[in-house]
Amino acid sequence: MKNILWMGLIVSSLGLSAQNYDFVVAKDGAGDFQTVQAAIDAVPHLRKNRTIIYVKSGVYKEKLILPTSKTNVSLIGESAAETILTFDDYASRKNMFGEEIGTSGSASFFIYGDGFEAKNLTFENSFGEGSQAVAVRVDGDRVKFENCRFLGNQDTLYPHGKDSRQYYKNCYIEGTVDFIFGWSTAFFEGCEIFSKRNGYITAASTEQETPFGFVFNNCKITGLAEAGTVFLGRPWRPYAQTVFMNCELGEVVHPEGWDPWRSEEKKKTAYYAEYANRGAGYQPDKRAQWAHILTDLEAEKYSLKNVMRDWNPDEE
């Protein structure tokens, strides 16, 4: 009788999993697939309903791609610390034709599909220092990451799509130089931004006609860098936009806050601003003269609702 009851509990548990997740990835073969890419490949093209992929703990060394035809896909990890998606490409690596793959080509994960969501996962480029090495490149629109880690050095996170809106909630992002960079509109809420050494956190390349670039709200800026050696950002392109609001800035932050990337012209067009920050790294009287300290009224413009327009990521 006990055996029958035990079997019933197993069936019940499996039934619950089947309802919660469409596919399960497990390295030991206990799921539907042993690789994350195989699960992505199995998602029907242009599906309107959400497809949920559960990834069990393990280190998955794969160079991943979510194509544009794979829409509304969710990747849910068993544990952010123990479910790791990693690869080790780097910009100067040669392809089979002897050509360098470049910064974009170095990405461990390419995300092109709209409506992608990730939760409880680590995304890593494990190459190390010495070259640009991207962990995640994001081109899709309405992309959300929650409780995820992004590990790397130079150019860790690449919000690339010019029309892409991205939301990062309670995430950890680390790197050395320009480790959050690109064209997209991205809102970071409650994230820890960790500088592993002296360098630059952001390198936005916002288009002139794009209303918002990178917005950091209620984030913590920490790191191993020496005090005063980390800039909040420098403009990769002339109209770069980056705003830090209600953030705790650690002592690693440079007193001037912002660097013009050796360009007087970029000082005239880039828009770098702060509002209601705090901590040892917040020294508004010493900030670069071409940057901005927002008033209460100006800061209202940078609400999640305003930045994301008709998409509310907190409702999904």
Rank of each mutant, 00 (worst) to 15 (best):
S92D: 13
W290V: 05
A273L: 12
S263V: 11
G250H: 04
G175Y: 10
E100M: 07
E82Q: 15
A135E: 00
Q208H: 07
E124S: 07
T206A: 06
L5W: 09
N20I: 12
D296Y: 11
E298P: 05
A91G: 10
Y167C: 09
A227W: 04
D28L: 08
F244Y: 14
E174H: 10
Q154K: 10
Q283F: 07
F127V: 00
G182R: 00
N246C: 08
P235D: 05
M96T: 08
R50I: 11
S92V: 08
Q289Y: 13
E251I: 11
G115D: 03
L151Y: 09
E124L: 00
W6R: 13
E207F: 08
P255V: 10
K56R: 15
L249V: 12
A18I: 06
F109Q: 04
G257M: 12
F212K: 00
V73W: 12
G113V: 08
D163C: 02
P260V: 02
W261S: 08
V25I: 08
G130D: 02
P284Q: 13
I52N: 09
E174F: 09
G152R: 00
F127Y: 15
K266D: 08
A135S: 07
I101A: 09
D89G: 13
F181Q: 02
A18Q: 11
Y275M: 14
S131G: 01
Q154G: 03
E315D: 07
N72E: 14
Q37W: 12
F194Y: 15
H254M: 05
G279Y: 11
F214S: 01
F231I: 00
I40Y: 11
T176S: 11
D28P: 03
N125S: 01
I76M: 15
A107K: 03
C148W: 05
G77D: 14
K61R: 14
A42R: 06
E62H: 13
E192Q: 15
E129C: 00
G281A: 10
D141G: 02
V252Y: 04
N95A: 13
E315H: 03
T83S: 14
P255F: 05
D88K: 09
A288N: 02
P313D: 02
T156W: 05
G279F: 09
E189T: 15
K301Q: 12
G228Q: 01
Y172N: 09
A18V: 09
W261E: 05
R237V: 00
N246E: 14
A81Q: 15
E78D: 15
I193M: 12
D22Y: 08
Y54L: 08
A42E: 13
R47P: 01
L14P: 03
V253A: 05
S74W: 15
W258G: 03
V177M: 04
A38M: 04
P255Q: 09
F97L: 14
E265C: 01
N170V: 01
G279S: 09
